[in-house]
Amino acid sequence: MLDDRARMEAAKKEKVEQILAEFQLQEEDLKKVMRRMQKEMDRGLRLETHEEASVKMLPTYVRSTPEGSEVGDFLSLDLGGTNFRVMLVKVGEGEEGQWSVKTKHQMYSIPEDAMTGTAEMLFDYISECISDFLDKHQMKHKKLPLGFTFSFPVRHEDIDKGILLNWTKGFKASGAEGNNVVGLLRDAIKRRGDFEMDVVAMVNDTVATMISCYYEDHQCEVGMIVGTGCNACYMEEMQNVELVEGDEGRMCVNTEWGAFGDSGELDEFLLEYDRLVDESSANPGQQLYEKLIGGKYMGELVRLVLLRLVDENLLFHGEASEQLRTRGAFETRFVSQVESDTGDRKQIYNILSTLGLRPSTTDCDIVRRACESVSTRAAHMCSAGLAGVINRMRESRSEDVMRITVGVDGSVYKLHPSFKERFHASVRRLTPSCEITFIESEEGSGRGAALVSAVACKKACMLGQ
């Protein structure tokens, strides 16, 4: 009897593995994704193909990295998701002549009506938060230079001027797309009239992360975010950046690689679950690469896999709870928690219980395998993109072996128990001629924006502006 049951459990697990095998990517698959990513990057950089390229390769006008001589107080704003952060950054000489960066910050959550109302409502709310922060720190009387981390696709015309191309991540505030974001912020500050600010720089969160990590390690020339969304930036040779005049030196390019796949480059790798996630998203047909990796989508992918296993009578005796059938019910943090389970399955059992399920031991094991399959594919897909960037940098610099540091931020990278190990191992397999160091950014977005502002202020002083 026991043997029969054991055989049935083994057969069930084997069927589960057959279904989950769809998520496995072979090294040849990853090399294919990497080569296609490089081709799209090239198209994004070139003037004649930029418009139709899915990977936009947006110039950021960040050319210099901090040298350690900029000092002063800077205000930093960070808008990239449902939370908005205001930070005071003091850049100065530390002990023994070292450079020191001290920060104080406060988080504000953005109400739904500000995210989806008008641009005026959104930026009025942001300036209200700045006003509140300055009151708390008794700094209303000071006109501070301000660095703005704005983590949406922007076409820069200068370091302090950028046109919002399109909202992502659930934002829909009308009247912002096609307009200068810094102008919208300046107008809102003017409307309030109770404080003055000098907006000197606007950067993407990947750029802010790279600059913040450069402060720790001067070989950091790539910034990457794996959180709600997924994106990367890197220092490109100016001669390859056709959208900006000049051939000397390097400029940081914001790849906006989340949109890779929007022209069909990933079609052969998309599964039924991916198509369902895409169809029910706020932007169907867009940001397809990001939807395979980002935390906004990972939990939902797992939920759809679990429903398939229920329908195949391989999980929960073929019956799903009402909660499990509800879109968004299986949160991405559950994926991390399930994979963090120590082996007694308590954590998995508790999560499934909150979803109205009474799982068996085998159910718990199957749910864990589903989570591992989805998150491992995410790590491997992400590795193909980064390997594409790094191999490109090595080739354009004609280096036999390139040493490089990548600064990384984002909740999936930082909080998932195995993502970074799987990701690092896969990147290294795909970049055999590179020695890569990964560092995690601390308060990256805010500190990085302030350091970019410090560079901009120093330049302005040198130019006598």
Rank of each mutant, 00 (worst) to 15 (best):
D198C: 01
T228Y: 06
R155G: 15
S426P: 01
A460Y: 13
E372V: 04
E300C: 10
M87E: 04
R36G: 04
D3G: 08
M251K: 00
H50D: 01
E372S: 11
G285Q: 05
L276D: 11
V203G: 01
P66I: 10
D198N: 01
L288I: 14
F195N: 01
S383I: 02
R85W: 06
V89N: 03
I404L: 07
T342F: 03
V253R: 00
P417M: 15
K13A: 15
T326C: 09
G178L: 15
H416P: 15
S109A: 09
C230V: 12
L386P: 09
A329I: 14
Q26S: 11
V335I: 09
A21C: 06
S398N: 02
I404V: 06
E272V: 02
Y234R: 00
G80R: 12
D365Q: 14
V200A: 03
E51R: 12
R303S: 05
R303K: 03
K136E: 08
L307E: 09
K31C: 07
D341R: 01
L301R: 07
L309M: 05
T82L: 12
M34P: 04
G246A: 04
R429V: 14
T431N: 06
E9M: 11
R303W: 03
L88Y: 10
S280Y: 15
E52C: 15
K459Q: 14
E440N: 12
M235W: 00
R35G: 15
D267M: 06
V62R: 00
V86W: 01
C220I: 07
G410K: 06
S383A: 10
G299M: 01
N240P: 01
D42A: 08
S396P: 08
L301F: 05
R186K: 07
Y214G: 08
C230D: 07
S433F: 08
E120A: 05
W167D: 14
S453C: 13
S263V: 06
S100T: 10
S441G: 05
S418N: 14
L144N: 05
F123P: 10
S281Y: 11
A201D: 01
I189C: 07
Q106S: 09
V33E: 03
K346E: 06
C461W: 15
L314E: 04
L185M: 03
F123V: 07
V91S: 06
D135T: 07
C382Y: 04
Y108Q: 02
G410N: 07
